[in-house]
Simulated scan of single mutants.
Amino acid sequence: MITDLNNIKSKDTEKEKERKEKKFLEKIFGRTTKADLKNEIDSLKIMIKQSSASVSKQEIWEKTKASIVVTHHSKMLNNNKSSKEQPVTYDLIDESREGDVKVRMPLKRKISITSSYGARKHPLFGTTRFHNGIDMAAWYENVYSVLDGTVTDTGWDSRGGGNYIKIRHFNRFETSYLHLSEIYYHPGEHVNAGFIIAKSGNSGNSTGPHLHFSVKEFGKSINPVHFLNDLIRVNNLIDIYNE
């Protein structure tokens, strides 16, 4: 009887483990099992082999990557109310892989957030305002596009942002980079993740050189810290399941 009870308990434990694994995979990838995910990857490989000369492997990969990014991001990026930032984790991406960049940080250095997302006391005017991005310490240094995209706007922000550039990604997200000293692209031009798009500076209403980075999803402001960390996780999940 004891043996039978132990066997039942063991089976229940295995079922619970399998249920949790399925739930995790379904949450992250929209798949039920690892086999489903493997079949998806195998189908992708077949598509690449059978594709005509007019459809490149890179084009197929870009479409697949975009799908994974937006699916994962829409599920993971929901907490936009808190004005208190959690520590930013940047040890999940290999910055040395110059030839295979899928995600890049806005700065090629250790990120130091000097002003967080949410309500804050404005450093110049002293009034409490909603800060729709994060400020990063940056002393006149290169600014990078975080994902592939198309430049939608550049110019001077009369509301205090100074020189800025905005980039559209996957027809869903828009990243903005403000207080720049130099801008290297024009509206309509395509950029890849890791392209140097500008140089940080002290333009506009600013107390010193820094980079203001903000993100919108379908036109709505979201927390840039969550956005960056989730994209890094997606980048590493793609690498793991492509091995």
Results as ranks from 00 to 15, higher is better:
41 I>P: 15
239 D>K: 15
43 S>A: 14
211 L>V: 09
58 Q>T: 09
158 S>N: 13
219 G>M: 04
8 I>H: 05
39 N>E: 15
197 I>R: 09
161 G>L: 02
142 N>K: 14
178 L>V: 01
125 F>P: 00
179 H>S: 13
127 T>F: 13
44 L>D: 11
43 S>M: 08
15 K>I: 06
41 I>C: 08
191 V>G: 02
3 T>C: 07
139 W>S: 15
129 R>C: 10
177 Y>L: 01
239 D>E: 15
54 S>N: 15
167 I>C: 00
95 E>I: 13
74 S>Q: 12
182 E>P: 00
232 I>P: 00
243 E>V: 04
84 K>Q: 05
181 S>Q: 14
70 V>L: 01
186 H>K: 14
7 N>K: 11
21 E>M: 14
205 N>R: 15
36 D>I: 01
23 K>A: 13
217 E>V: 08
216 K>A: 01
240 I>Y: 11
65 K>P: 01
156 W>E: 11
55 V>I: 15
78 N>R: 14
55 V>S: 05
206 S>Y: 03
201 G>I: 06
233 R>D: 07
10 S>H: 11
91 D>I: 10
177 Y>Q: 01
135 D>L: 12
240 I>F: 12
106 P>T: 00
222 I>D: 08
115 S>A: 15
8 I>W: 03
206 S>T: 08
94 D>F: 03
236 N>W: 08
70 V>S: 06
180 L>V: 12
48 I>E: 15
95 E>R: 13
33 T>W: 08
153 D>A: 11
87 P>T: 04
203 S>M: 06
143 V>W: 04
194 G>D: 01
227 F>R: 01
121 K>I: 10
226 H>E: 12
187 P>S: 08
73 H>C: 06
68 I>W: 12
112 S>A: 09
2 I>N: 02
113 I>W: 05
141 E>V: 08
173 F>W: 09
178 L>S: 05
50 Q>S: 14
157 D>N: 12
24 F>L: 10
77 L>I: 13
142 N>I: 00
26 E>F: 13
168 R>L: 13
54 S>W: 09
121 K>A: 03
60 I>Y: 13
220 K>F: 01
123 P>Q: 10
166 K>C: 03
97 R>W: 01
96 S>R: 09
82 S>D: 14
6 N>G: 00
30 G>R: 04
23 K>M: 07
117 Y>E: 05
97 R>F: 04
224 P>S: 07
183 I>M: 07
40 E>T: 12
237 L>F: 03
77 L>Y: 05
27 K>T: 15
155 G>L: 10
64 T>C: 01
37 L>G: 04
100 D>E: 11
231 L>E: 05
186 H>V: 11
174 E>M: 03
